[in-house]
Write a protein that binds this DNA or RNA. Structure first.
Lengths: 221, 221
DNA sequence: ATATTTTTCTATAGATCTATAGAAAAATTG
DNA sequence: CAATTTTTCTATAGATCTATAGAAAAATAT
């Protein structure tokens, strides 16, 4: 009789019944988010219909509301799902102690391979999150800021270690890395034939050789 | 009585009545495209309504069909308008004979300042063109390919002149330049406080110093 | 096996939104 | 100014699409 799930706190609060056993609901909820991600990634938030999502998930349109209270809520959850995963993976990389250049490769590699793994949710976060009303973007803003600061800190360390030129703008560089990776990420999703490894190497190289210190300056300026 | 304009060939075939005098229709048609560009840029193609566009233009929803035969047709025309302008400006730069580095600054500068000039149409082209049905994307594809080839040729010249490293992938680099500029273009539109000049310089520098030959390689690889 | 809870289905109210038709208003021409 | 053409308006048919309600089916528990 209950219209919405009674126990499931929607934000799937980890702690649950058995050891490994996510509830049935929680499992399918993830599938629902992934279905929504696929559809939003292909058609855009406004271009997608709840019917599209439901059919991707294999249920009827009306049933979708058992998992999402609204279409916009679905978008919010897809974005958070995609971005949380992404940031978590980045956290690991940042915390590893390894030479700066290796770190940069890891960052780019992680970013790009995540796209190729069909992380539609990440694409949705990048392309569609601005269609969320402001009050639904709070957590995303937090995550984004935290992530950018982490990246900037890493770059700052590179500067302190003398690996990076002292005159680079950390903020600018961080944004540029993200921007470049997102641009290629889009290509990688769209075109299966692009080689992931080559692209990773090329991106890292482009950034590094533009950022590494101890390089001979061109002709003027 | 005529539902659609009788003379105006929609694609505004240049040749017209008086010397300077675009027809009244042609003038307002441009305004209509620009209104649509503003709305599409802010709300996305599917998120925008014909009512939004009409009201931006100062007319009623139904009247909009005097200028566009459909909403999708409006999107097509906005995209072509934005991208044609952009490519034309780039053509000029490519045809100038000037040192490669200066050329790179011009390319980035042109790309970014066009965004700041509120070229919503260009943003729409970049973000929304994939929502066009394939058969409406023909001209855009042509323009895009032509532009990329132009950019690649320019890069190729740089290599031949020995200004650029011989091992760079022209295709990759062209895409990356476009991607980086688009990423910053989006930021520039969204955030008025970002300095255009600084950003231009930073972008050009990031690309150049990662691409210029005769630089000392880092530590390994 | 029966009762209870969870999940899905059908059907639909109520809001859109696109596109069209025909009348009205504004501009232009003779 | 009257006739003609261009531009805009009002009104609406016809298609969506979101979200909800209540019944049905499936799963789980007693």
């Amino acid at each position: 009789m209950s219209q919405s799930p009674q126990q499931h706190s929607i934000e799937s609060n980890a702690a649950h019944s058995s050891v490994v056993g996510e509830t049935r609901y929680a499992k399918k909820k993830v599938l629902a988010i992934e279905a929504a991600a696929i559809v939003f990634a292909n058609k855009g938030f406004h271009g997608a219909t709840t019917e599209d999502i439901a059919s991707e998930l294999g249920i009827k349109q009306g049933s979708l509301y058992y998992y999402f209270s609204s279409k916009e809520e679905a978008l919010r959850q897809v974005c958070e799902y995609g971005f949380e995963n992404y940031v978590a993976q980045m956290q690991k990389i940042f915390s590893r102690s390894q030479p700066f250049e290796a770190k940069m490769y890891s960052i780019v590699s992680s970013h790009l391979s995540r796209y190729r793994q069909k992380s539609n949710a990440l694409k949705v976060h990048n392309d569609q999150r601005l269609y969320l009303s402001k009050d639904k973007r709070g957590r995303l803003k937090e995550l984004g800021t935290a992530y950018r600061q982490l990246l900037e800190t890493t770059l700052g360390e590179g500067v302190e270690q003398g690996v990076l030129r002292a005159d680079i703008d950390l903020h600018f560089t961080a944004y540029s890395i993200i921007g470049l990776c997102n641009a290629w990420g889009g290509n990688l999703i769209r075109d299966e034939s692009i080689d992931l490894f080559d692209t990773t190497e090329s991106c890292a190289n482009l950034i590094l050789r533009g950022v590494l210190s101890a390089q001979q300056i061109g002709t003027e300026y």
